[in-house]
Design a protein around this nucleic acid. Structure first.
Lengths: 204, 204, 204, 204
DNA sequence: CATGAATGAGATTTCATTCAT
DNA sequence: AATGAATGAAATCTCATTCAT
């Protein structure tokens, strides 16, 4: 069935990734065997290996999406003009996470991707790079808050950006794993904490 | 025959867990083979299997520590009297994470444990339970903040507790995986954000 | 449909054999995959299979040439009139081997063909037949030496022919594998040994 | 069944090599599957892989013996004092080949080993080294013939040694593959050719 | 208590070959 | 005539686990 359209090839790749994603969510990267993927996709071994040259390549394709999938949207929200208030920004991004998990479950693989990054040198490097990029968006966002007078002029924007970026994994874990957290509740929680009264007296 | 001291048994178990931990950190749960653990521990297959009846049991032993290891300390800090300010509480607990990673690397397994919990029914249940317990401590902490007048009386303490609890995974990931975040910086970041000026106007 | 010239077909066959030969020399018959041959020839699977109905057929086509390729020339030299002296005959045939390896490397497959003949019933029969034919030429050559008075009248021509034929593999191996033997040196070596003084006293 | 004697280990290795040798002779290195070796040896996959870490290692173990197996004996014969006549030396070594094929068929693998050496870089180097060593014995043998006055004083001993060494592969192939040559016949053939009358007139 | 040889199912990947287009 | 996607059996090797010693 040769001489096949570019679109056909693309569909096949998607078919394989869909199958692999389903398996990985159900059983994990390593407990999923290639046989599982053949069965789930309805393709033969040879067919799958025509599109991906190893299991690792499939894992990395999906894990990369799980890690980088949100990046574009984060940028969109955080660069909005005028600069959105913090609870809006966080609330909309967590909301986005929720809606994205729906149609394309890839985000459910994020914890597995973090785990993989902890011991796989190469994938770890990729993940660190992507995380640093996205975190940089948060840092720039805090700089804009500062320029807008919404945080004090002497704010350590890098530190604040790291703290904000750090809210996302916590939301993801509670949303995906514990399963009892909504975007709205998270936002509400944030709002109540945003007061100097919660802080230790300034050391200065 | 036997007649071996309780202490001896405990030492053997520790020896095996130490070896397994080192392997798991280096290669991950599933890429680590039992033979890797035999080699790292200097024990024979038979010896290891006398103390743990399967690889799963070893994984679960360590993953449980990675998940629950901090629980006791969290309680200590959050129940302190008088109730510590938010940045103190968070700062001390992230500090604790940092110092705990030193002597006993088990915490480095936390991301792998989260990942495992995503698809392993039984372990997932365990993790959810433990997380909920620890999160409950944060919720109670917010209630004490409220009683002390440090957050408004109408605060949704559950929501706020979830938000606070959610800071921890973000710190862990940035600390372990990206490797460029200190406890002090995280705290500083939090402090600058704790202001109503960062928030959208109250919808009410 | 078709309407393709005989010449075209012949060219395609040659193209495939050229590619296969290159692969076989580089990687051996069995380590070479059909996909290697497709790539080397620049043809598709379907195209190759139109001209050869199996990998075995390709191997046999080339192995046969490797075994039988010299036969015609051997005959030419050994049947020359007047009968050439032994060192001339051997020298010219080894020389021929050397010059033949140049333009068409097929001879480099000879050791693989011998090996194949050792365990492949059918190919072994073919090789035995061809070897026996060529060896017969050597035997007839010795008979002519005898008739010309160059070896004693009671010479066992069969035995002597086998001994002479046996020089060829030794030359091929040293030439192809060790790579430090020339036709001229081989001939010189032979000359110095051709003396009754090297022999044990006649048992008679 | 641990804590096993050195001898047991040695027996197992031998058992595996025996099985592999039988398979390799019957089907060739590459047509023999590891399953074939498991079946022939009566051992499990795991057991075989405890003793040899790859199929290649088994092939090389046997191919090395096939190549180097005779070396010790060659030395013994060629260094004998007084220096044995050429037909004796060749006759006794071919005789040795014949008797060695009997009890331990490894020699039957020689053609496969030559073939392998043609394209396997590493094994090729090994084979070249061993061949050069053994050939050196022949060269030294010719030097002793010269010193004993059995060949002319101006003999090119290297060339003559190469020619003599070259008789062996020819004998092996005719003996193993065609199967109609005896050591005695080969020797007889040599004797009849050892006369200056067979040679072209000296060019000098 | 401890050893470590042995098991054998199962993992990933390759490969000769076919056939719809 | 030619393509090349697809097949699926089979290849090599690994691994958690057992049990005779």
């Amino acid at each position: 069935m040769p001489r096949v359209s570019e679109e056909h090839l693309e569909r096949r790749r998607a078919q394989i990734l869909d199958a692999a994603r389903a398996c990985f969510i159900r059983k994990g990267f390593h407990e999923t065997s290639m046989q599982d993927i053949f069965a789930e996709s309805g393709l033969s071994a040879g067919a799958v290996y025509r599109y991906f040259k190893s299991k690792t390549e499939i894992i990395e394709a999906l894990a990369s999406v799980a890690i980088g999938g949100l990046a574009g949207y984060v940028s969109e929200v955080l660069k909005e003009d005028p600069v959105p208030p913090l609870d809006d920004a966080v609330g909309r991004l967590t909301q986005l996470i929720v809606t994205m998990v729906g149609p394309d479950d890839t985000l459910r693989l994020a914890p597995q991707a973090w785990a993989l990054a902890m011991y796989d040198e190469q994938f770890g490097t990729y993940v660190r790079t992507r995380m640093t990029e996205v975190r940089q968006l948060w840092i720039m966002y805090v700089e804009r808050l500062r320029d807008a007078g919404m945080v004090p002029p002497d704010t350590d924007c890098t530190a604040a950006g790291k703290a904000l970026f750090g809210m996302m994994p916590g939301f993801v874990i509670q949303y995906l794993l514990v399963g009892d957290l909504t975007s709205e509740e998270f936002r509400r929680g944030l709002r109540s904490l945003a007061s100097p009264a919660t802080l230790a007296p300034d050391p200065a």
